[in-house]
Amino acid sequence: METIHIPIDAERIISTSSKGDQSKWRIGNKWVKQNARGYEGQAEVLASLVLECSTLDRSKYVVYQPCIIQLADGEQFDGCYSLDFRGTKQEVTLERLFEANFNSTDSITSNKTLSTIEKFELLMKQVEQYTGLVVNHQIAQLFAFDALILNEDRHTNNILFLYDPKEKTWELAPIFDNGLSLLSDEKDYAPSKPLTILKRRVKAKPLNSSFTKQLSLYEGPAFINKEKLVTAIEKSQYDFGRAKDVLLSQLRDPGLKHLFIEGSESID
């Protein structure tokens, strides 16, 4: 496993999630993230492996690699890293996109009079109005992926758009930041508890706390090659720990069967 040395003058960036703060650093063209609440790095690496075994183009998701983070004083931590995908483009989260247009996603996502699909359609309508992009399929597919990996941190600052100021064009950023998935938060999901109990406690974001209801938004074709994924997991020399057990249990969930490409879903 690669060890990434953090120079003494490197800026520690505190990234805030729905669960608290996480330390990360920009080292060259790499973003390096330290585990904060459990095994976020393992979950991040395994989540990107799921996408590598999907029909998504490589440009549509970020690949994470495991690493040891060594500080200048010699202290070491587990974590992961990814390559910077932004280039010269400006990153604009879904939340900031709304704020820039004197609006807020909260007026939609927290509106209890709206159904999940109504919230989704309103958000997508506003996104198209602000950017010209029609990304209904991609965002619904993102929510389906989140249901598979039990991602509890897909808040509106974890859906990202990229703006090219030179060309004045918008695009949906690749899928990133999946660390709070697969029960990686050991403070909330104790390793001593059964997976069946813990999985029922995980809440989805941002439209509904139910993964099933957000999953229902996806009406596209199957996009996960289950057989390829299971083979990749078993052949990997990296120890995914409990993240592997959680994912394998998800692959056996009949409610997710329609996400698996025909001919690959029978693998247990």
Rank of each mutant, 00 (worst) to 15 (best):
S18H: 03
A36V: 12
E40D: 09
T3D: 03
H5M: 12
L49Q: 10
R26G: 07
G41H: 12
K24P: 01
K24Q: 14
K19L: 11
S23F: 08
I4Q: 04
S23G: 09
K30S: 07
E40S: 07
E11W: 01
G41N: 11
E40Q: 15
T3I: 12
Q34D: 02
W25A: 03
V32S: 04
L46R: 01
G38D: 12
W25I: 11
I4F: 02
V45S: 06
S17H: 12
I14W: 09
A43I: 10
S15C: 08
V32I: 15
K19M: 08
S15Q: 11
W25K: 04
A43G: 02
Q34E: 14
N35Q: 11
A47P: 05
D9W: 04
Q22G: 10
N29L: 08
I4W: 00
P7S: 01
I13H: 03
I14F: 02
I27H: 00
R12V: 14
L49V: 12
R37C: 08
H5P: 01
T3L: 03
L46D: 02
E40H: 08
S15I: 14
I13A: 02
G38E: 09
S17C: 08
E44T: 13
L49E: 03
P7T: 06
G28D: 08
L49M: 14
E11P: 03
I27M: 01
T16Q: 09
H5L: 15
E44L: 09
V50C: 06
T3K: 05
G38I: 15
W25R: 01
G28T: 10
I8P: 00
K30A: 07
D9Y: 06
N35P: 07
Y39L: 11
G20F: 05
V32M: 10
A47I: 13
V32R: 07
R26L: 15
I6Q: 00
A36E: 08
